[in-house]
Design a protein around this nucleic acid. Structure first.
Length: 515
RNA sequence: GUCCCGGUCGUCUAGUCCGGCCUAGGACCCCAGAUUUUCAUUCUGGUAACACGGGUUCGAAUCCCGUCCGGGAUACCA
């Protein structure tokens, strides 16, 4: 090993957003670097000037940051092996090309696009099975070159591939594969304008940046062969390659940048917890262990081995992703949830409430953590806590009308609650109650010391009331929940009463009872 | 066309390298049940796979060959 420190890179081209496949490639490189105690760097392959944009670059960087993938060298970081943008490395490519030209390992090609295409068609017609560049300029004499130059033709620089050489390439994932160079044509290294093409710039940079391991999509497998030959021509040792299988869309096709919903930032904007997305993507082609699906970034790093990446493609399953989001959502503390969900919560929570009613909001959110998967789903479920009046949905209206005695129950219950020692209602200060009682209430939890009635105490009063009424609790609870929340879903009834507080609970019960 | 890679429940996968512990394990989804004041959570149970055909072997998901299917590459994109 000539390079003692493992160095891995993610080399996106800023021609579109960071999509799922790119994120996973970045993640595997990152994890491998971290696992081996090496360096992870970002190199921007911006040689496609027509399609590269700074906006795309920013989106890619934001996507990586959102997933928690950090880099040691590259944009915004610098490093000793820069520049990290290929368009700033043009002289490096030119120098390498000159050297190869001088050594006869590359040659200028004067063919026009049309001529190349015609050559390809001719090879197709021959039905040899192979078609590519026909090598017309491979052995031009000095005089012929001069003649082309005289005509004003600009030259591409092509790499002179060895003819019909069988080489054995080793891939960390695919194993040993035999390839014959006759299947590969003389490829273009540099365009007439001096801008290099992928295969060339990639190798020059991998050498310059001392890359030791390359983990990339399987679509680059054949490119790898061309690149190995270039390393050889340059007298450099090539990195270890690992070609990972593609992520497929629902139709089993390669996931492309043009597929909708593949921009990482879309997941952020839709309220997905990044930790869950990270975890899910990691699982697309790699297994933590036979019996565990959930793991942290740190745990992944500790367990990660390039060799354990799978060989077959995988389809993206949004349902499992959602499930995983829910798993993570339940693990956060309520405070973390409030903070993470805040951009969405602000749709329904009055701005000042975050400062004045922090403890209360945490209790509200805590009651819904097991009922949502995304941060964006809280706001549509907690609106009933704020409005002056309750908006009844269809199920609630039905529950309200179910029993003719309902209004009487509600009135009576309102009286019970009025006489109880409930916490005050928002927007009054109720922090003492919310700090003392952590919701949602759990069966076997020890009774908290609280100056107000706890959900458990509210339950005692409530059950006593239904007994007094001589009705089943199960019948009583539905209209009450409807009156209080306007729906037939939600947290336990006593948590609901506690959260609502005295004034609001009483008012709503009386309003629903028609006074 | 040619070259290359892949193929375990519907999906993600463990097992494959070093055949027997695999009457193939886990997870998502789905179904049933339990708990329960609703929803959700949780718990229990269930349906469901070694692509196919030949070998080799006492024994194959695991090794070999063929077939089929899927994917990738074949650019002056990356």
């Amino acid at each position: 090993m000539i390079h003692p420190t493992p160095r891995l890179r993610f080399a996106p081209s800023p021609t579109g957003p960071l999509h799922l496949g790119g994120a996973r490639t970045a993640m595997y490189n990152w994890a491998a670097a971290r696992a081996m105690g090496g360096t992870f760097l970002l190199r921007i392959e911006d040689t496609d000037q027509a399609r590269s944009t700074d906006a795309s670059l920013q989106i890619i960087l934001a996507g990586l940051r959102w997933l928690g993938i950090d880099w040691d060298e590259g944009p915004e970081k610098g490093g000793d092996f820069g520049p990290y943008f290929q368009m700033q490395r043009l002289e490096l490519y030119a120098a390498a090309a000159q050297r190869l030209l001088a050594e006869g390992k590359a040659y200028p090609c004067y063919c026009t696009t049309e001529e190349i295409e015609a050559g390809r068609e001719a090879m197709k017609a021959e039905k040899t099975g192979f078609y590519g560049y026909n090598g017309r300029c491979r052995n031009l004499t000095a005089a012929e070159r001069a003649a082309f130059e005289q005509q004003g033709r600009k030259a591409n620089i092509r790499f002179r591939m060895p003819e019909a050489r069988v080489m054995n390439v080793h891939d960390l994932i695919l194993g040993d594969v035999e390839v014959n160079t006759k299947e590969l044509d003389d490829w273009v290294m540099i365009r007439p304008d001096g801008v290099p093409l992928y295969n060339f710039a990639c190798v020059i940079d991998d050498i310059g940046m001392k890359i030791t391991h390359v983990v990339r999509g399987n679509e680059h497998f054949q490119n790898g062969h061309k690149q190995r030959l270039l390393f050889e021509a340059l007298g450099a040792e090539c990195p270890l390659y690992a070609h990972i299988p593609l992520i497929l869309n629902k139709d089993g096709k390669k996931l492309s940048k043009r597929d909708a919903d593949t921009n990482m930032l879309d997941y952020r904007d839709k309220g997905f917890p990044p930790e869950a997305v990270f975890n899910y993507i990691a699982l697309l082609g790699w297994g933590f262990s036979g019996d565990r699906d959930l793991f942290t970034r740190q745990e992944m790093v500790e367990a990660f081995k390039i060799e354990n990446i799978g060989k077959s493609g995988s389809k993206f399953d949004e349902e499992k992703l959602r499930w995983m989001c829910g798993e993570y959502m339940r693990r956060w503390t309520p405070a973390q949830c409030v903070q993470q969900a805040r951009p969405w919560l602000e749709q329904v929570v009055p701005a000042g409430a975050f400062a004045t009613h922090g403890a209360w909001l945490q209790n509200v959110i805590a009651c819904f953590q097991e009922r949502v998967a995304l941060y964006s789903e809280f706001d549509s479920k907690i609106g009933w806590l704020f409005g002056e009046t309750v908006v009844m949905d269809e199920a609630a209206q039905k529950n309200l009308a179910k029993d003719p005695a309902g209004p009487a129950w509600l009135r009576g219950y309102a009286d019970v609650l009025e006489g109880a020692n409930l916490p005050p209602s928002y927007p009054r200060d109720r922090s003492a109650a919310d700090r003392a009682v952590g919701l949602p209430s759990k069966k076997d939890a020890p009774a908290p010391a609280c100056a107000f009635d706890t959900p458990a105490q509210i339950e005692v009063r409530t059950r006593a009331f239904t007994e007094q009424l001589g009705i089943k609790f199960g019948n009583f609870v539905h209209p009450v929940r409807a009156a209080l929340t306007g729906t037939d879903k939600g947290p336990g009834l006593f948590d609901v009463v506690f959260l609502l507080g005295k004034e609001t609970a009483v008012a709503r019960l009386r309003a629903a009872a028609g006074r």
